[in-house]
Simulated scan of single mutants.
Amino acid sequence: MKNKLKDILVDYFFINFGLVISAIGIGLFLVPGKIVSGGVSGIATILYYTFNLPVGLVMLALNIPLFLIGLKIFGKTYGVKTFFGTVFLSVYIDLLRFIIPNANNIIDFDKASNALIAPIFGGVITGIGVGLIMKFGGSTGGTDIVAQIINKYFKIPLGYSFIFIDGLILLAGSSVFGIEKGLYAIISLYAGAVAINKIFEGVSYSKMIYIISDYHEDIKNLILHDFDRGGTGLYGNGLYTNKDKKIIMTVLKNNEIHELKNYVKQIDPNAFVIISEVYEVLGEGFTPF
């Protein structure tokens, strides 16, 4: 029970941290830069410049009905964490812009030399925040609920649903702020997506290596003793030779790969080596569970 409570508190700590980071990205970069890169925050940005309505309050007003619709359609999928994210992201954005009343003027985003600051920094910072929120099971609600409703009732793939909704919002932003801002918004979308993936999936600090060699015993001893790593021996069959082969599978840190390749080349210049990215490794010698 104590461990479960600890896990819940850790989840909410990082979700809250992600919400603060997202609020900085939206409130200090995307909104002042007039970057409408989709989502409820994009709609709120348009309404802020059109009717001078507070960004956070508009987001909350749009998100609450969407949350209730999602709760009715999808049930417990949209639970406490989604409600927490929906409410507090809006609160943090308006609180931040209240604490920093000249947020729109800290950087002159209309200056040609500063044009890329808002889409790149806004996209990356917001993406980092959203990635953290998602990594710990949270959500900020918004248009992802609409996308899932479209997916459920019209059988349009979720990815296309997101593109369709964000595309409409982006077009609306372009019509208000101009095509140039619309193109910058696409950069922001891409930067945000990359940041979300890096945070959600993890930055690759390790590589998975498959080694096929007739000198597998020598290579096995090399990995066990010189690199102090474990591995797994797999059995395969050569399609061309029809001979049984032993395959060594192991995981090494990025800075160990170059040294391993040199050693394997010395042992067997004809070895077949496959190296692929690994985003998370749990266990002895790497990240503990």
Rank of each mutant, 00 (worst) to 15 (best):
K2P: 00
N3F: 04
L5Y: 15
K6H: 15
D7C: 08
F14W: 14
A23F: 03
G33I: 01
K34M: 13
K34L: 01
I35N: 06
I35Q: 10
I35K: 07
V36L: 09
V40N: 01
I43Y: 12
I46R: 07
Y48D: 07
G56T: 03
A61R: 03
F67D: 01
I69E: 01
G70P: 06
L71M: 13
Y78N: 08
Y78G: 05
V87S: 03
V87C: 04
R97M: 02
N104P: 00
N105Q: 09
I107W: 05
D108L: 10
F109K: 00
A112G: 03
I120G: 11
G127P: 06
G127W: 07
G129D: 04
K135I: 04
V146A: 05
V146H: 04
Q148Y: 15
I150P: 03
I150Q: 08
N151K: 13
N151G: 12
K152C: 07
K152M: 03
Y153K: 09
Y153R: 07
L158N: 13
L158W: 12
Y160L: 11
L168E: 03
L171F: 15
G173E: 02
S174E: 10
I179W: 10
G182L: 03
G182S: 14
A185M: 03
G192P: 01
A195C: 00
I196Y: 14
N197G: 10
N197M: 06
N197A: 09
E201V: 05
S204P: 02
Y215P: 00
D218C: 02
I223G: 07
F227A: 06
G230P: 09
Y240L: 05
N242S: 13
D244E: 15
T250V: 06
T250F: 02
V251P: 06
N255E: 12
N262R: 15
V264C: 11
V264H: 04
A271H: 04
F272S: 09
S276R: 15
S276G: 12
V281Q: 12
G283R: 11
T287Y: 15
F289Y: 09
